[in-house]
Amino acid sequence: MDLAQTDEQLWRAVVRGDGVAFAAIFDRHGDRVWRHAWRLMQHRQDTEDVVAAAFAEAWRRRAHVRIVDESVLPWLLVTTTNCARNARRSLRRNERLIAHIPLGPDAPDAADVAADRFERFDAGSAVAQAMRELSDTDARLVSLVMLEDVPLADAARAIGIGYGAAKTRIHRARQRLRGRLEAAGAAEEVSA
């Protein structure tokens, strides 16, 4: 496999089922996808699960992956954001289920155990919490533009929205994030 090939060239081989080309894409972008997933999950095992899910989704939907400026990275980052959101929803569902399981008299309260797990999961970053409050489209856009430094026009194409809509959405998302982070900072100062 020629490492000088562009993502677009490699991806054409992936679409034909070439696992070596897919491995080259993973080698090229796996670390960046992992860092992005880490920012969203803040837990090693959850991050690894999200990265695996994102690349599994890339392989599964390989014929439908959108290449932006000869790179598959924007699509991978958006998919990673979606997988992280799905993983968090799954964690919350499991915690709610566990909280309702009856236990023996000397067992710890399941609600406390679930709350402890969620607190550890949630304590990673005020940014991650603020990101969870954005719409799916806004979270994808913020992830690409603000966390991954993808140009706004490229991010808009990767997500499938127009540049004007992306410009409006990123402006509003920044305002919401700023307000949420300022409120979180004030809450931390009050509790300190």
Rank of each mutant, 00 (worst) to 15 (best):
A110T: 15
R176G: 00
F26V: 15
A63N: 08
A24K: 10
D7I: 10
D138H: 09
F121V: 13
V33Q: 05
R62S: 04
Y163P: 02
S143R: 01
W34C: 08
D49T: 12
A23W: 02
I159E: 01
D136Q: 11
V127I: 15
Q42N: 14
R39N: 08
Q129F: 03
V145A: 05
A111Q: 13
H36Q: 11
A126L: 12
S143E: 02
N82S: 07
F118H: 15
R180W: 00
T47N: 04
G179V: 05
Q129E: 13
A128Y: 05
L152Q: 08
S135W: 03
R12H: 12
M1S: 13
D2G: 06
R93N: 08
D109C: 14
R169T: 02
F121N: 10
S191T: 14
T80S: 09
G104P: 10
I161E: 01
P108C: 06
Q5K: 13
N86R: 11
R32C: 03
D49Y: 04
R61P: 00
W38Q: 11
D136G: 08
S143W: 01
P74A: 06
A192F: 11
A111S: 15
S125V: 10
L3D: 12
W34L: 13
R140K: 06
R85G: 05
W59V: 03
R117E: 12
Y163I: 04
W59D: 02
W38T: 05
H100A: 11
Q9F: 06
Q175C: 02
W59A: 06
V145F: 01
G19N: 11
D46I: 08
E148T: 02
L10Q: 13
G162F: 01
R60Q: 09
M146E: 13
T6R: 09
A53E: 14
V190P: 00
E48T: 11
T80M: 04
A24V: 11
A187W: 00
E133T: 13
P102Q: 10
A4T: 11
R62F: 06
L134N: 04
T168C: 03
V150S: 00
V113L: 14
D112M: 15
A139E: 09
Q42E: 14
V68A: 09
T168H: 05
D116K: 15
E148D: 11
E182I: 15
D112A: 14
A53C: 06
V33S: 04
